[in-house]
Amino acid sequence: MRALVGLWRWRHNPLRRRTDLVEAWVACAAVLLIAAAAPLAGLAIGGASRDTLQQSVREQHEVRHEVIGTVVKKVSGPPIDPDPETSSARDRHSRVLAEWTAPDGTAHSGTVFASLRSPDPGDRFRLWTDERGQVVGRPLDDATASTHAALAGIGAAVAVAGLVEGARRLVVWRIVLRRYDRWDQAWDKAGPDWGRTGTGS
């Protein structure tokens, strides 16, 4: 809006320089590009990310299976984890020796994290495995995939807006430098005694 006001202000102003008009047009073009290109880029990147992530959701749900594990015993003394984020997330889980049956029917056992606060032998819990019974992470769900896609779209829109604004500032900076060069040239032509011209001194 400010760019349009600037264009209108410079329309018939006798003090208008050519660079003023160029600067106003550059600002107007930047506003239009931000208003049009940024949302389009956000929609395109968000849509492409959503398609890719939904494909990942489908693939993960095909190869990862939820099975029921049975606690054999609780394992005390979890290993020290230097990452405070993962260790705090694991505080809600217990480390147990468990048994489970893989989707292919084979029996497995091992030390895993169970979503039980105080597990006792025989307690049952859910865990995710691949088709051979190896423990894997929980597959990505639709809501998380949609959130990541939306964030990617917003990030792309902000990046485009930032690039356009950066280009506008670069052009204005070049215009100002040229303006200063012209002022210096005009000052050099006027000479050092321009204020005393015609006074006979």
Score class of each variant (00 low, 15 high):
V63H: 04
H61E: 08
I68N: 13
W25V: 12
L53F: 12
E59C: 02
I45V: 15
V75M: 12
V71S: 05
I80C: 01
R64Q: 09
D51V: 07
Q60V: 01
V63Y: 07
L32M: 12
I34G: 10
V26Q: 05
V71M: 05
K74E: 15
V31M: 06
Q55C: 03
Q55W: 01
K74L: 11
A36E: 03
G42Q: 00
I68Y: 12
S56D: 06
A41W: 15
V31R: 07
I68K: 13
A44R: 06
Q60R: 03
A29R: 11
L32E: 12
P82R: 13
H61T: 00
L33P: 02
S56W: 00
T70C: 05
A30W: 15
A38L: 10
G42H: 01
D83T: 10
V57I: 08
A37D: 09
P39R: 15
S56Y: 00
T70G: 12
G47E: 05
G47I: 02
V75D: 04
V75N: 08
T52S: 01
T52R: 07
A30V: 07
T52D: 00
V31Y: 10
E62N: 02
A35V: 14
P84M: 11
L40Q: 14
E59T: 04
G42I: 00
R50V: 01
T70V: 13
R50H: 09
A36G: 07
V72T: 06
